[in-house]
């Protein structure tokens, strides 16, 4: 149908790569949720026109190279200590937009104390937490957020609560603390979920600029390599298993 050939001009452009993302190819596995969350953060920074006023703190974990992909200022923190580094950056640069980007091994395991205390102090930073229920970078070991019965490299017969304890819902825990202003749980498995997640990121950044306290955005994500699935099956498994255990929606919004 040659008469309906769409002209690839600027006026017909609906969606293109934001300039905040660099041209580097991400090291993440195909279909990884981290790529989508990176993109959303970059798009929100671009829409808010804050590229030169944003400082990110990258964690240890799969997202350790986040500084290669977003063209903003970054600091790299020791394992789990991103909230402490972000506190210092925000206190010294109160007009900057500061966020941390952490995974479940970083934020919910080794960094639990830092996470709880930044939320209790109510620093004006945004925390983006990607929860895929597994240690992805080190080869798929059990994390505090691993579901009951889920098989990983270090619990090959499934997580047993008598031996390994229960999955750790850190979003619910920090929503009890007075320093948090916005705690939400989102996912990026469908286009609709991606749009909602983008709104949550925007709100978190706006809260941090308004000085309302910590905004904590949790993304329930996939780790298809760690879960030993293809990306589409991992998204389906997440909808069937992860989302019932970690229900989506706002846990706190003041």
């Amino acid at each position: 149908m040659a008469e309906f050939e769409v002209q690839k001009t600027q006026e017909n452009l609906v969606y293109s790569r934001t300039k905040v993302l660099t041209d580097n190819v991400m090291h993440y596995c195909p279909g990884c949720s981290h790529g989508t969350v990176h993109k959303l953060i970059a798009e929100v920074i671009d829409e808010m026109n804050m590229q030169d006023k944003t400082i990110g703190v990258s964690p240890v974990g799969c997202a350790v190279f986040a500084y290669n992909y977003l063209d903003i200022d970054w600091a790299e923190a020791a394992h789990g200590r991103a909230p402490a580094v972000a506190t210092a950056i925000k206190r010294l640069n109160p007009d900057k937009m500061v966020f941390t980007y952490q995974g479940d091994g970083d934020l919910a395991a080794i960094g639990t104390a830092e996470t709880i205390h930044i939320c209790n102090r109510g620093e004006n930073v945004a925390i983006f937490f990607v929860n895929n229920g597994i240690y992805g970078m080190t080869g798929g070991q059990m994390a505090p957020t691993t579901l009951i019965g889920m098989k990983t490299a270090t619990c090959p017969y499934g997580r047993d609560p008598k031996l390994h304890g229960f999955p750790y819902k850190i979003g619910n825990i920090v929503s009890q603390l007075e320093g948090t202003c916005y705690v939400t749980r989102q996912s990026v498995n469908t286009p609709a979920a991606v749009r909602k997640a983008k709104k949550a990121i925007r709100k978190a950044f706006e809260n941090s600029l308004a000085g309302k306290g910590v905004s904590f955005v949790e993304f329930v994500g996939t780790c298809n390599s760690g879960w030993k699935m293809d990306p589409v099956a991992a998204n389906k498994w997440m909808e069937e298993n992860m989302i019932p255990a970690y229900p989506l929606g706002d846990l706190k919004d003041i």
Binding site: E3, F4, V6, Q7, K8, T9, N12, L13, V14, Y15, S16, R17, T18, L21, V25, M26, Y28, P30, G31, C32, S33, H34, G35, T36, K39, V188, T190, P191, V194, R195
Partner: peptide, 21 residues
Amino acid sequence: GCASCAIICPDTCITVYRQKF
């Protein structure tokens, strides 16, 4: 040109154009 593919692409490798005829 709904851009569903582009907004979910983890590697942001899709550009979308739309035109009304």
